[in-house]
Amino acid sequence: MTLNILFFAFAAMIVVPLIYLLITKNIIRAAFAFAISLLGMAAIYVLLNAEFMAVVQILIYAGGIVVLLIFGVMLTKRSGDEGVFTAHHQVIPGVLVSLAFFVLLTQSIFDVNLAWGEEVTSTDQVKQIGVLYLTDHLIAFELIAFLLLMALVGAAFLAKKSDQ
């Protein structure tokens, strides 16, 4: 019961900020709302005993991506305007696309067989994930690592002073 209440509370925590995000024109506030909804998602992960996922969610999304986003907005802010605002462009195509996407997602959710698996226990999650990464999913793991390394090198290269 409490679990249910918590679930809906956190679900609201995800949805309400997202709606606000759609309405507001203030980009920074939108980013802030986005961060809150990400935290709500992390909370849902915790409810599902997926602590590691929750932590990653916070670390990568809330702590990393949103900050990066805000940072980007701030750095590209044109001087002289009051805050950073956006306008609502192309409302009708946007609504259509999102509706289509919504239908697609709901359809697929119902199509997927969401049987309740056995409940995950939280002990040794990290170890299991680590072991899986280095055995079953080694190639994916290595590829991601390689991709990130390339991104890093690329960033360093871009940041390098050009002599020309």
Partner: peptide, 12 residues
């Protein structure tokens, strides 16, 4: 389980 990880991420 991932206490240390959690701590670092939350603090960030």
């Amino acid at each position: 389980d991932a206490g240390l990880f959690f701590l670092l991420s939350v603090v960030s």
